[in-house]
């Protein structure tokens, strides 16, 4: 498709009209094209008959539930990225969702910035899967093979978790990554710590690599942006 650059073509399969309208409006504002299906069967039909950049699928749907829908899609060899929406408190929901073929999941209710960040991340994943062994942002260089980081030629000593954190941020350069995305992807934690432990990791990282690379996006998360680098360079 034509992403990045333009918006994505997103199929939203969600039965609650209010939630659907909220999500569709927000994503359209962000420049995406959103088509809404209100039940499982209709959603499956549309998902398989047209081409999409992303599916957002509610777990609980009338007709055919979200898990079943995605299982059928995957069974037909359709590999469109899928973001599951689940309701609060489902302890085993994430595992079953991923097992059915989902790529990411989000618990309702969520902040819109969280949904947006995940949609962007999934959309990018399908178009620009980087196989580079060196990640760069401005004069910062991360060598994934040598597992070394340097800035302006000066070698930086990073600990294991700091390295993984920076690697994830760099892989998503120019994109907003949320606290929960960091928790899930850097540490593999699927719970919400009651403290700002992620923030303290970020400020530690800033102390080591300099404070001008990792930016805080208010109410959303973090974003790596080098002042002298263009998007997607």
């Amino acid at each position: 498709m034509n992403y990045p650059g333009g918006g994505m073509r997103i199929l939203l399969i969600e039965d609650e009209p209010e939630t659907a309208a909220y999500i569709a409006a927000g994503l359209q504002e962000a420049g995406h094209e959103v088509v809404h299906a209100a039940d499982g069967r209709g959603g499956l039909l549309q998902a398989s008959s047209e081409s999409w950049d992303l599916l957002i699928v509610d777990r609980m749907l009338p007709g055919l539930d979200g898990l079943g829908l995605v299982r059928v899609l995957r069974g037909c060899g359709i590999a469109i990225p899928v973001l599951f929406l689940t309701t609060m408190g489902g302890v085993g929901d994430r595992v079953s969702g991923l097992r059915a073929g989902g790529d990411d999941y989000l618990v309702k209710p969520f902040a819109f910035s969280e949904l947006e960040a995940r949609v962007e991340a999934l959309g990018r994943r399908s178009s620009t899967l980087t196989t580079d062994t060196v990640l760069r942002a401005g004069d910062l260089e991360m060598d994934l093979l040598a597992r070394s980081v340097s800035r302006g030629g000066r070698v930086l000593e990073l600990q294991r978790q700091e390295f993984r954190l920076l690697e994830y941020l760099l892989r998503n350069t120019g994109q907003v990554v949320t606290r929960t995305m960091l928790l899930e992807n850097v540490w593999g934690y699927h719970f919400d710590p009651r403290t700002n432990v992620v923030e303290s990791h970020i400020s530690r990282l800033r102390e080591k690599i300099g404070g001008d690379l990792v930016h805080t996006v208010r109410g959303a998360g973090y974003c790596v942006r080098a002042s002298d680098t263009a998007f997607g360079a």
Binding site: V95, R160, Q161, V197, S200, S203
Partner: peptide, 25 residues
């Protein structure tokens, strides 16, 4: 029901590392 064999040592080590910056703060 969802039990698996876990390396508790690794799990705890990771947590200690995870919380070190916060503790120092």
């Amino acid at each position: 029901i969802a039990f698996t064999r876990l390396d508790v040592s690794a799990l705890l080590e990771d947590l200690v590392e995870f919380y070190t910056p916060l503790a120092e703060e």
